[in-house]
Amino acid sequence: MTGRTIKKEWTLDLDFSAPMGETYTRFVEGLKEKMFLGNRCGERTFFPPKPFCDRTLEAAGEWLQSDGTGTVEAFTVIHEKSKGVVFPDTEHFPEVPYILGVIRINGSDQCLIHFLSGFDNDDPQAWPEKIQVGMAVRPVWSEKRSGHILDIKYFEPCE
């Protein structure tokens, strides 16, 4: 063995497609109309909707509608730009630093991860103090909506 080795480089360029199914199709079509849809399964409520409840493995039933207001459960301030994203939406994707939040739509038993913005402070170092867990937020809708989670540009404080 000489220990000599050369470096091999390769790239995968792959296309995928799939039906979104009834539950998620109905949800994203609601976004076009500025509706935030959810559903219920037994005692649990899901915004966004789920086809089933993980706990009981029962199919979800009744549809529910919300205006998308909710509360912040957790957040992070992203300082380092991601070196690659699979779903780049150049129109809506924020520049660093930006805030990624865990949001619970009012009444929901599951959470949503989305952008937070619109805080009355330009200093990203101050954001961790400015943003409170439990603070009320509402969706800011895009003018052009195509049935996509980024039809909501971001969530902003209600006050």
Binding site: F75, S82, L100, V102, H114
Partner: peptide, 22 residues
Amino acid sequence: DPVFRGPVGLNAWQSYSLLAMD
């Protein structure tokens, strides 16, 4: 997933930051 979390760019390090903050 490509419907809810993928489009907001969520990756491993960002998921860790959310947990650490929490």
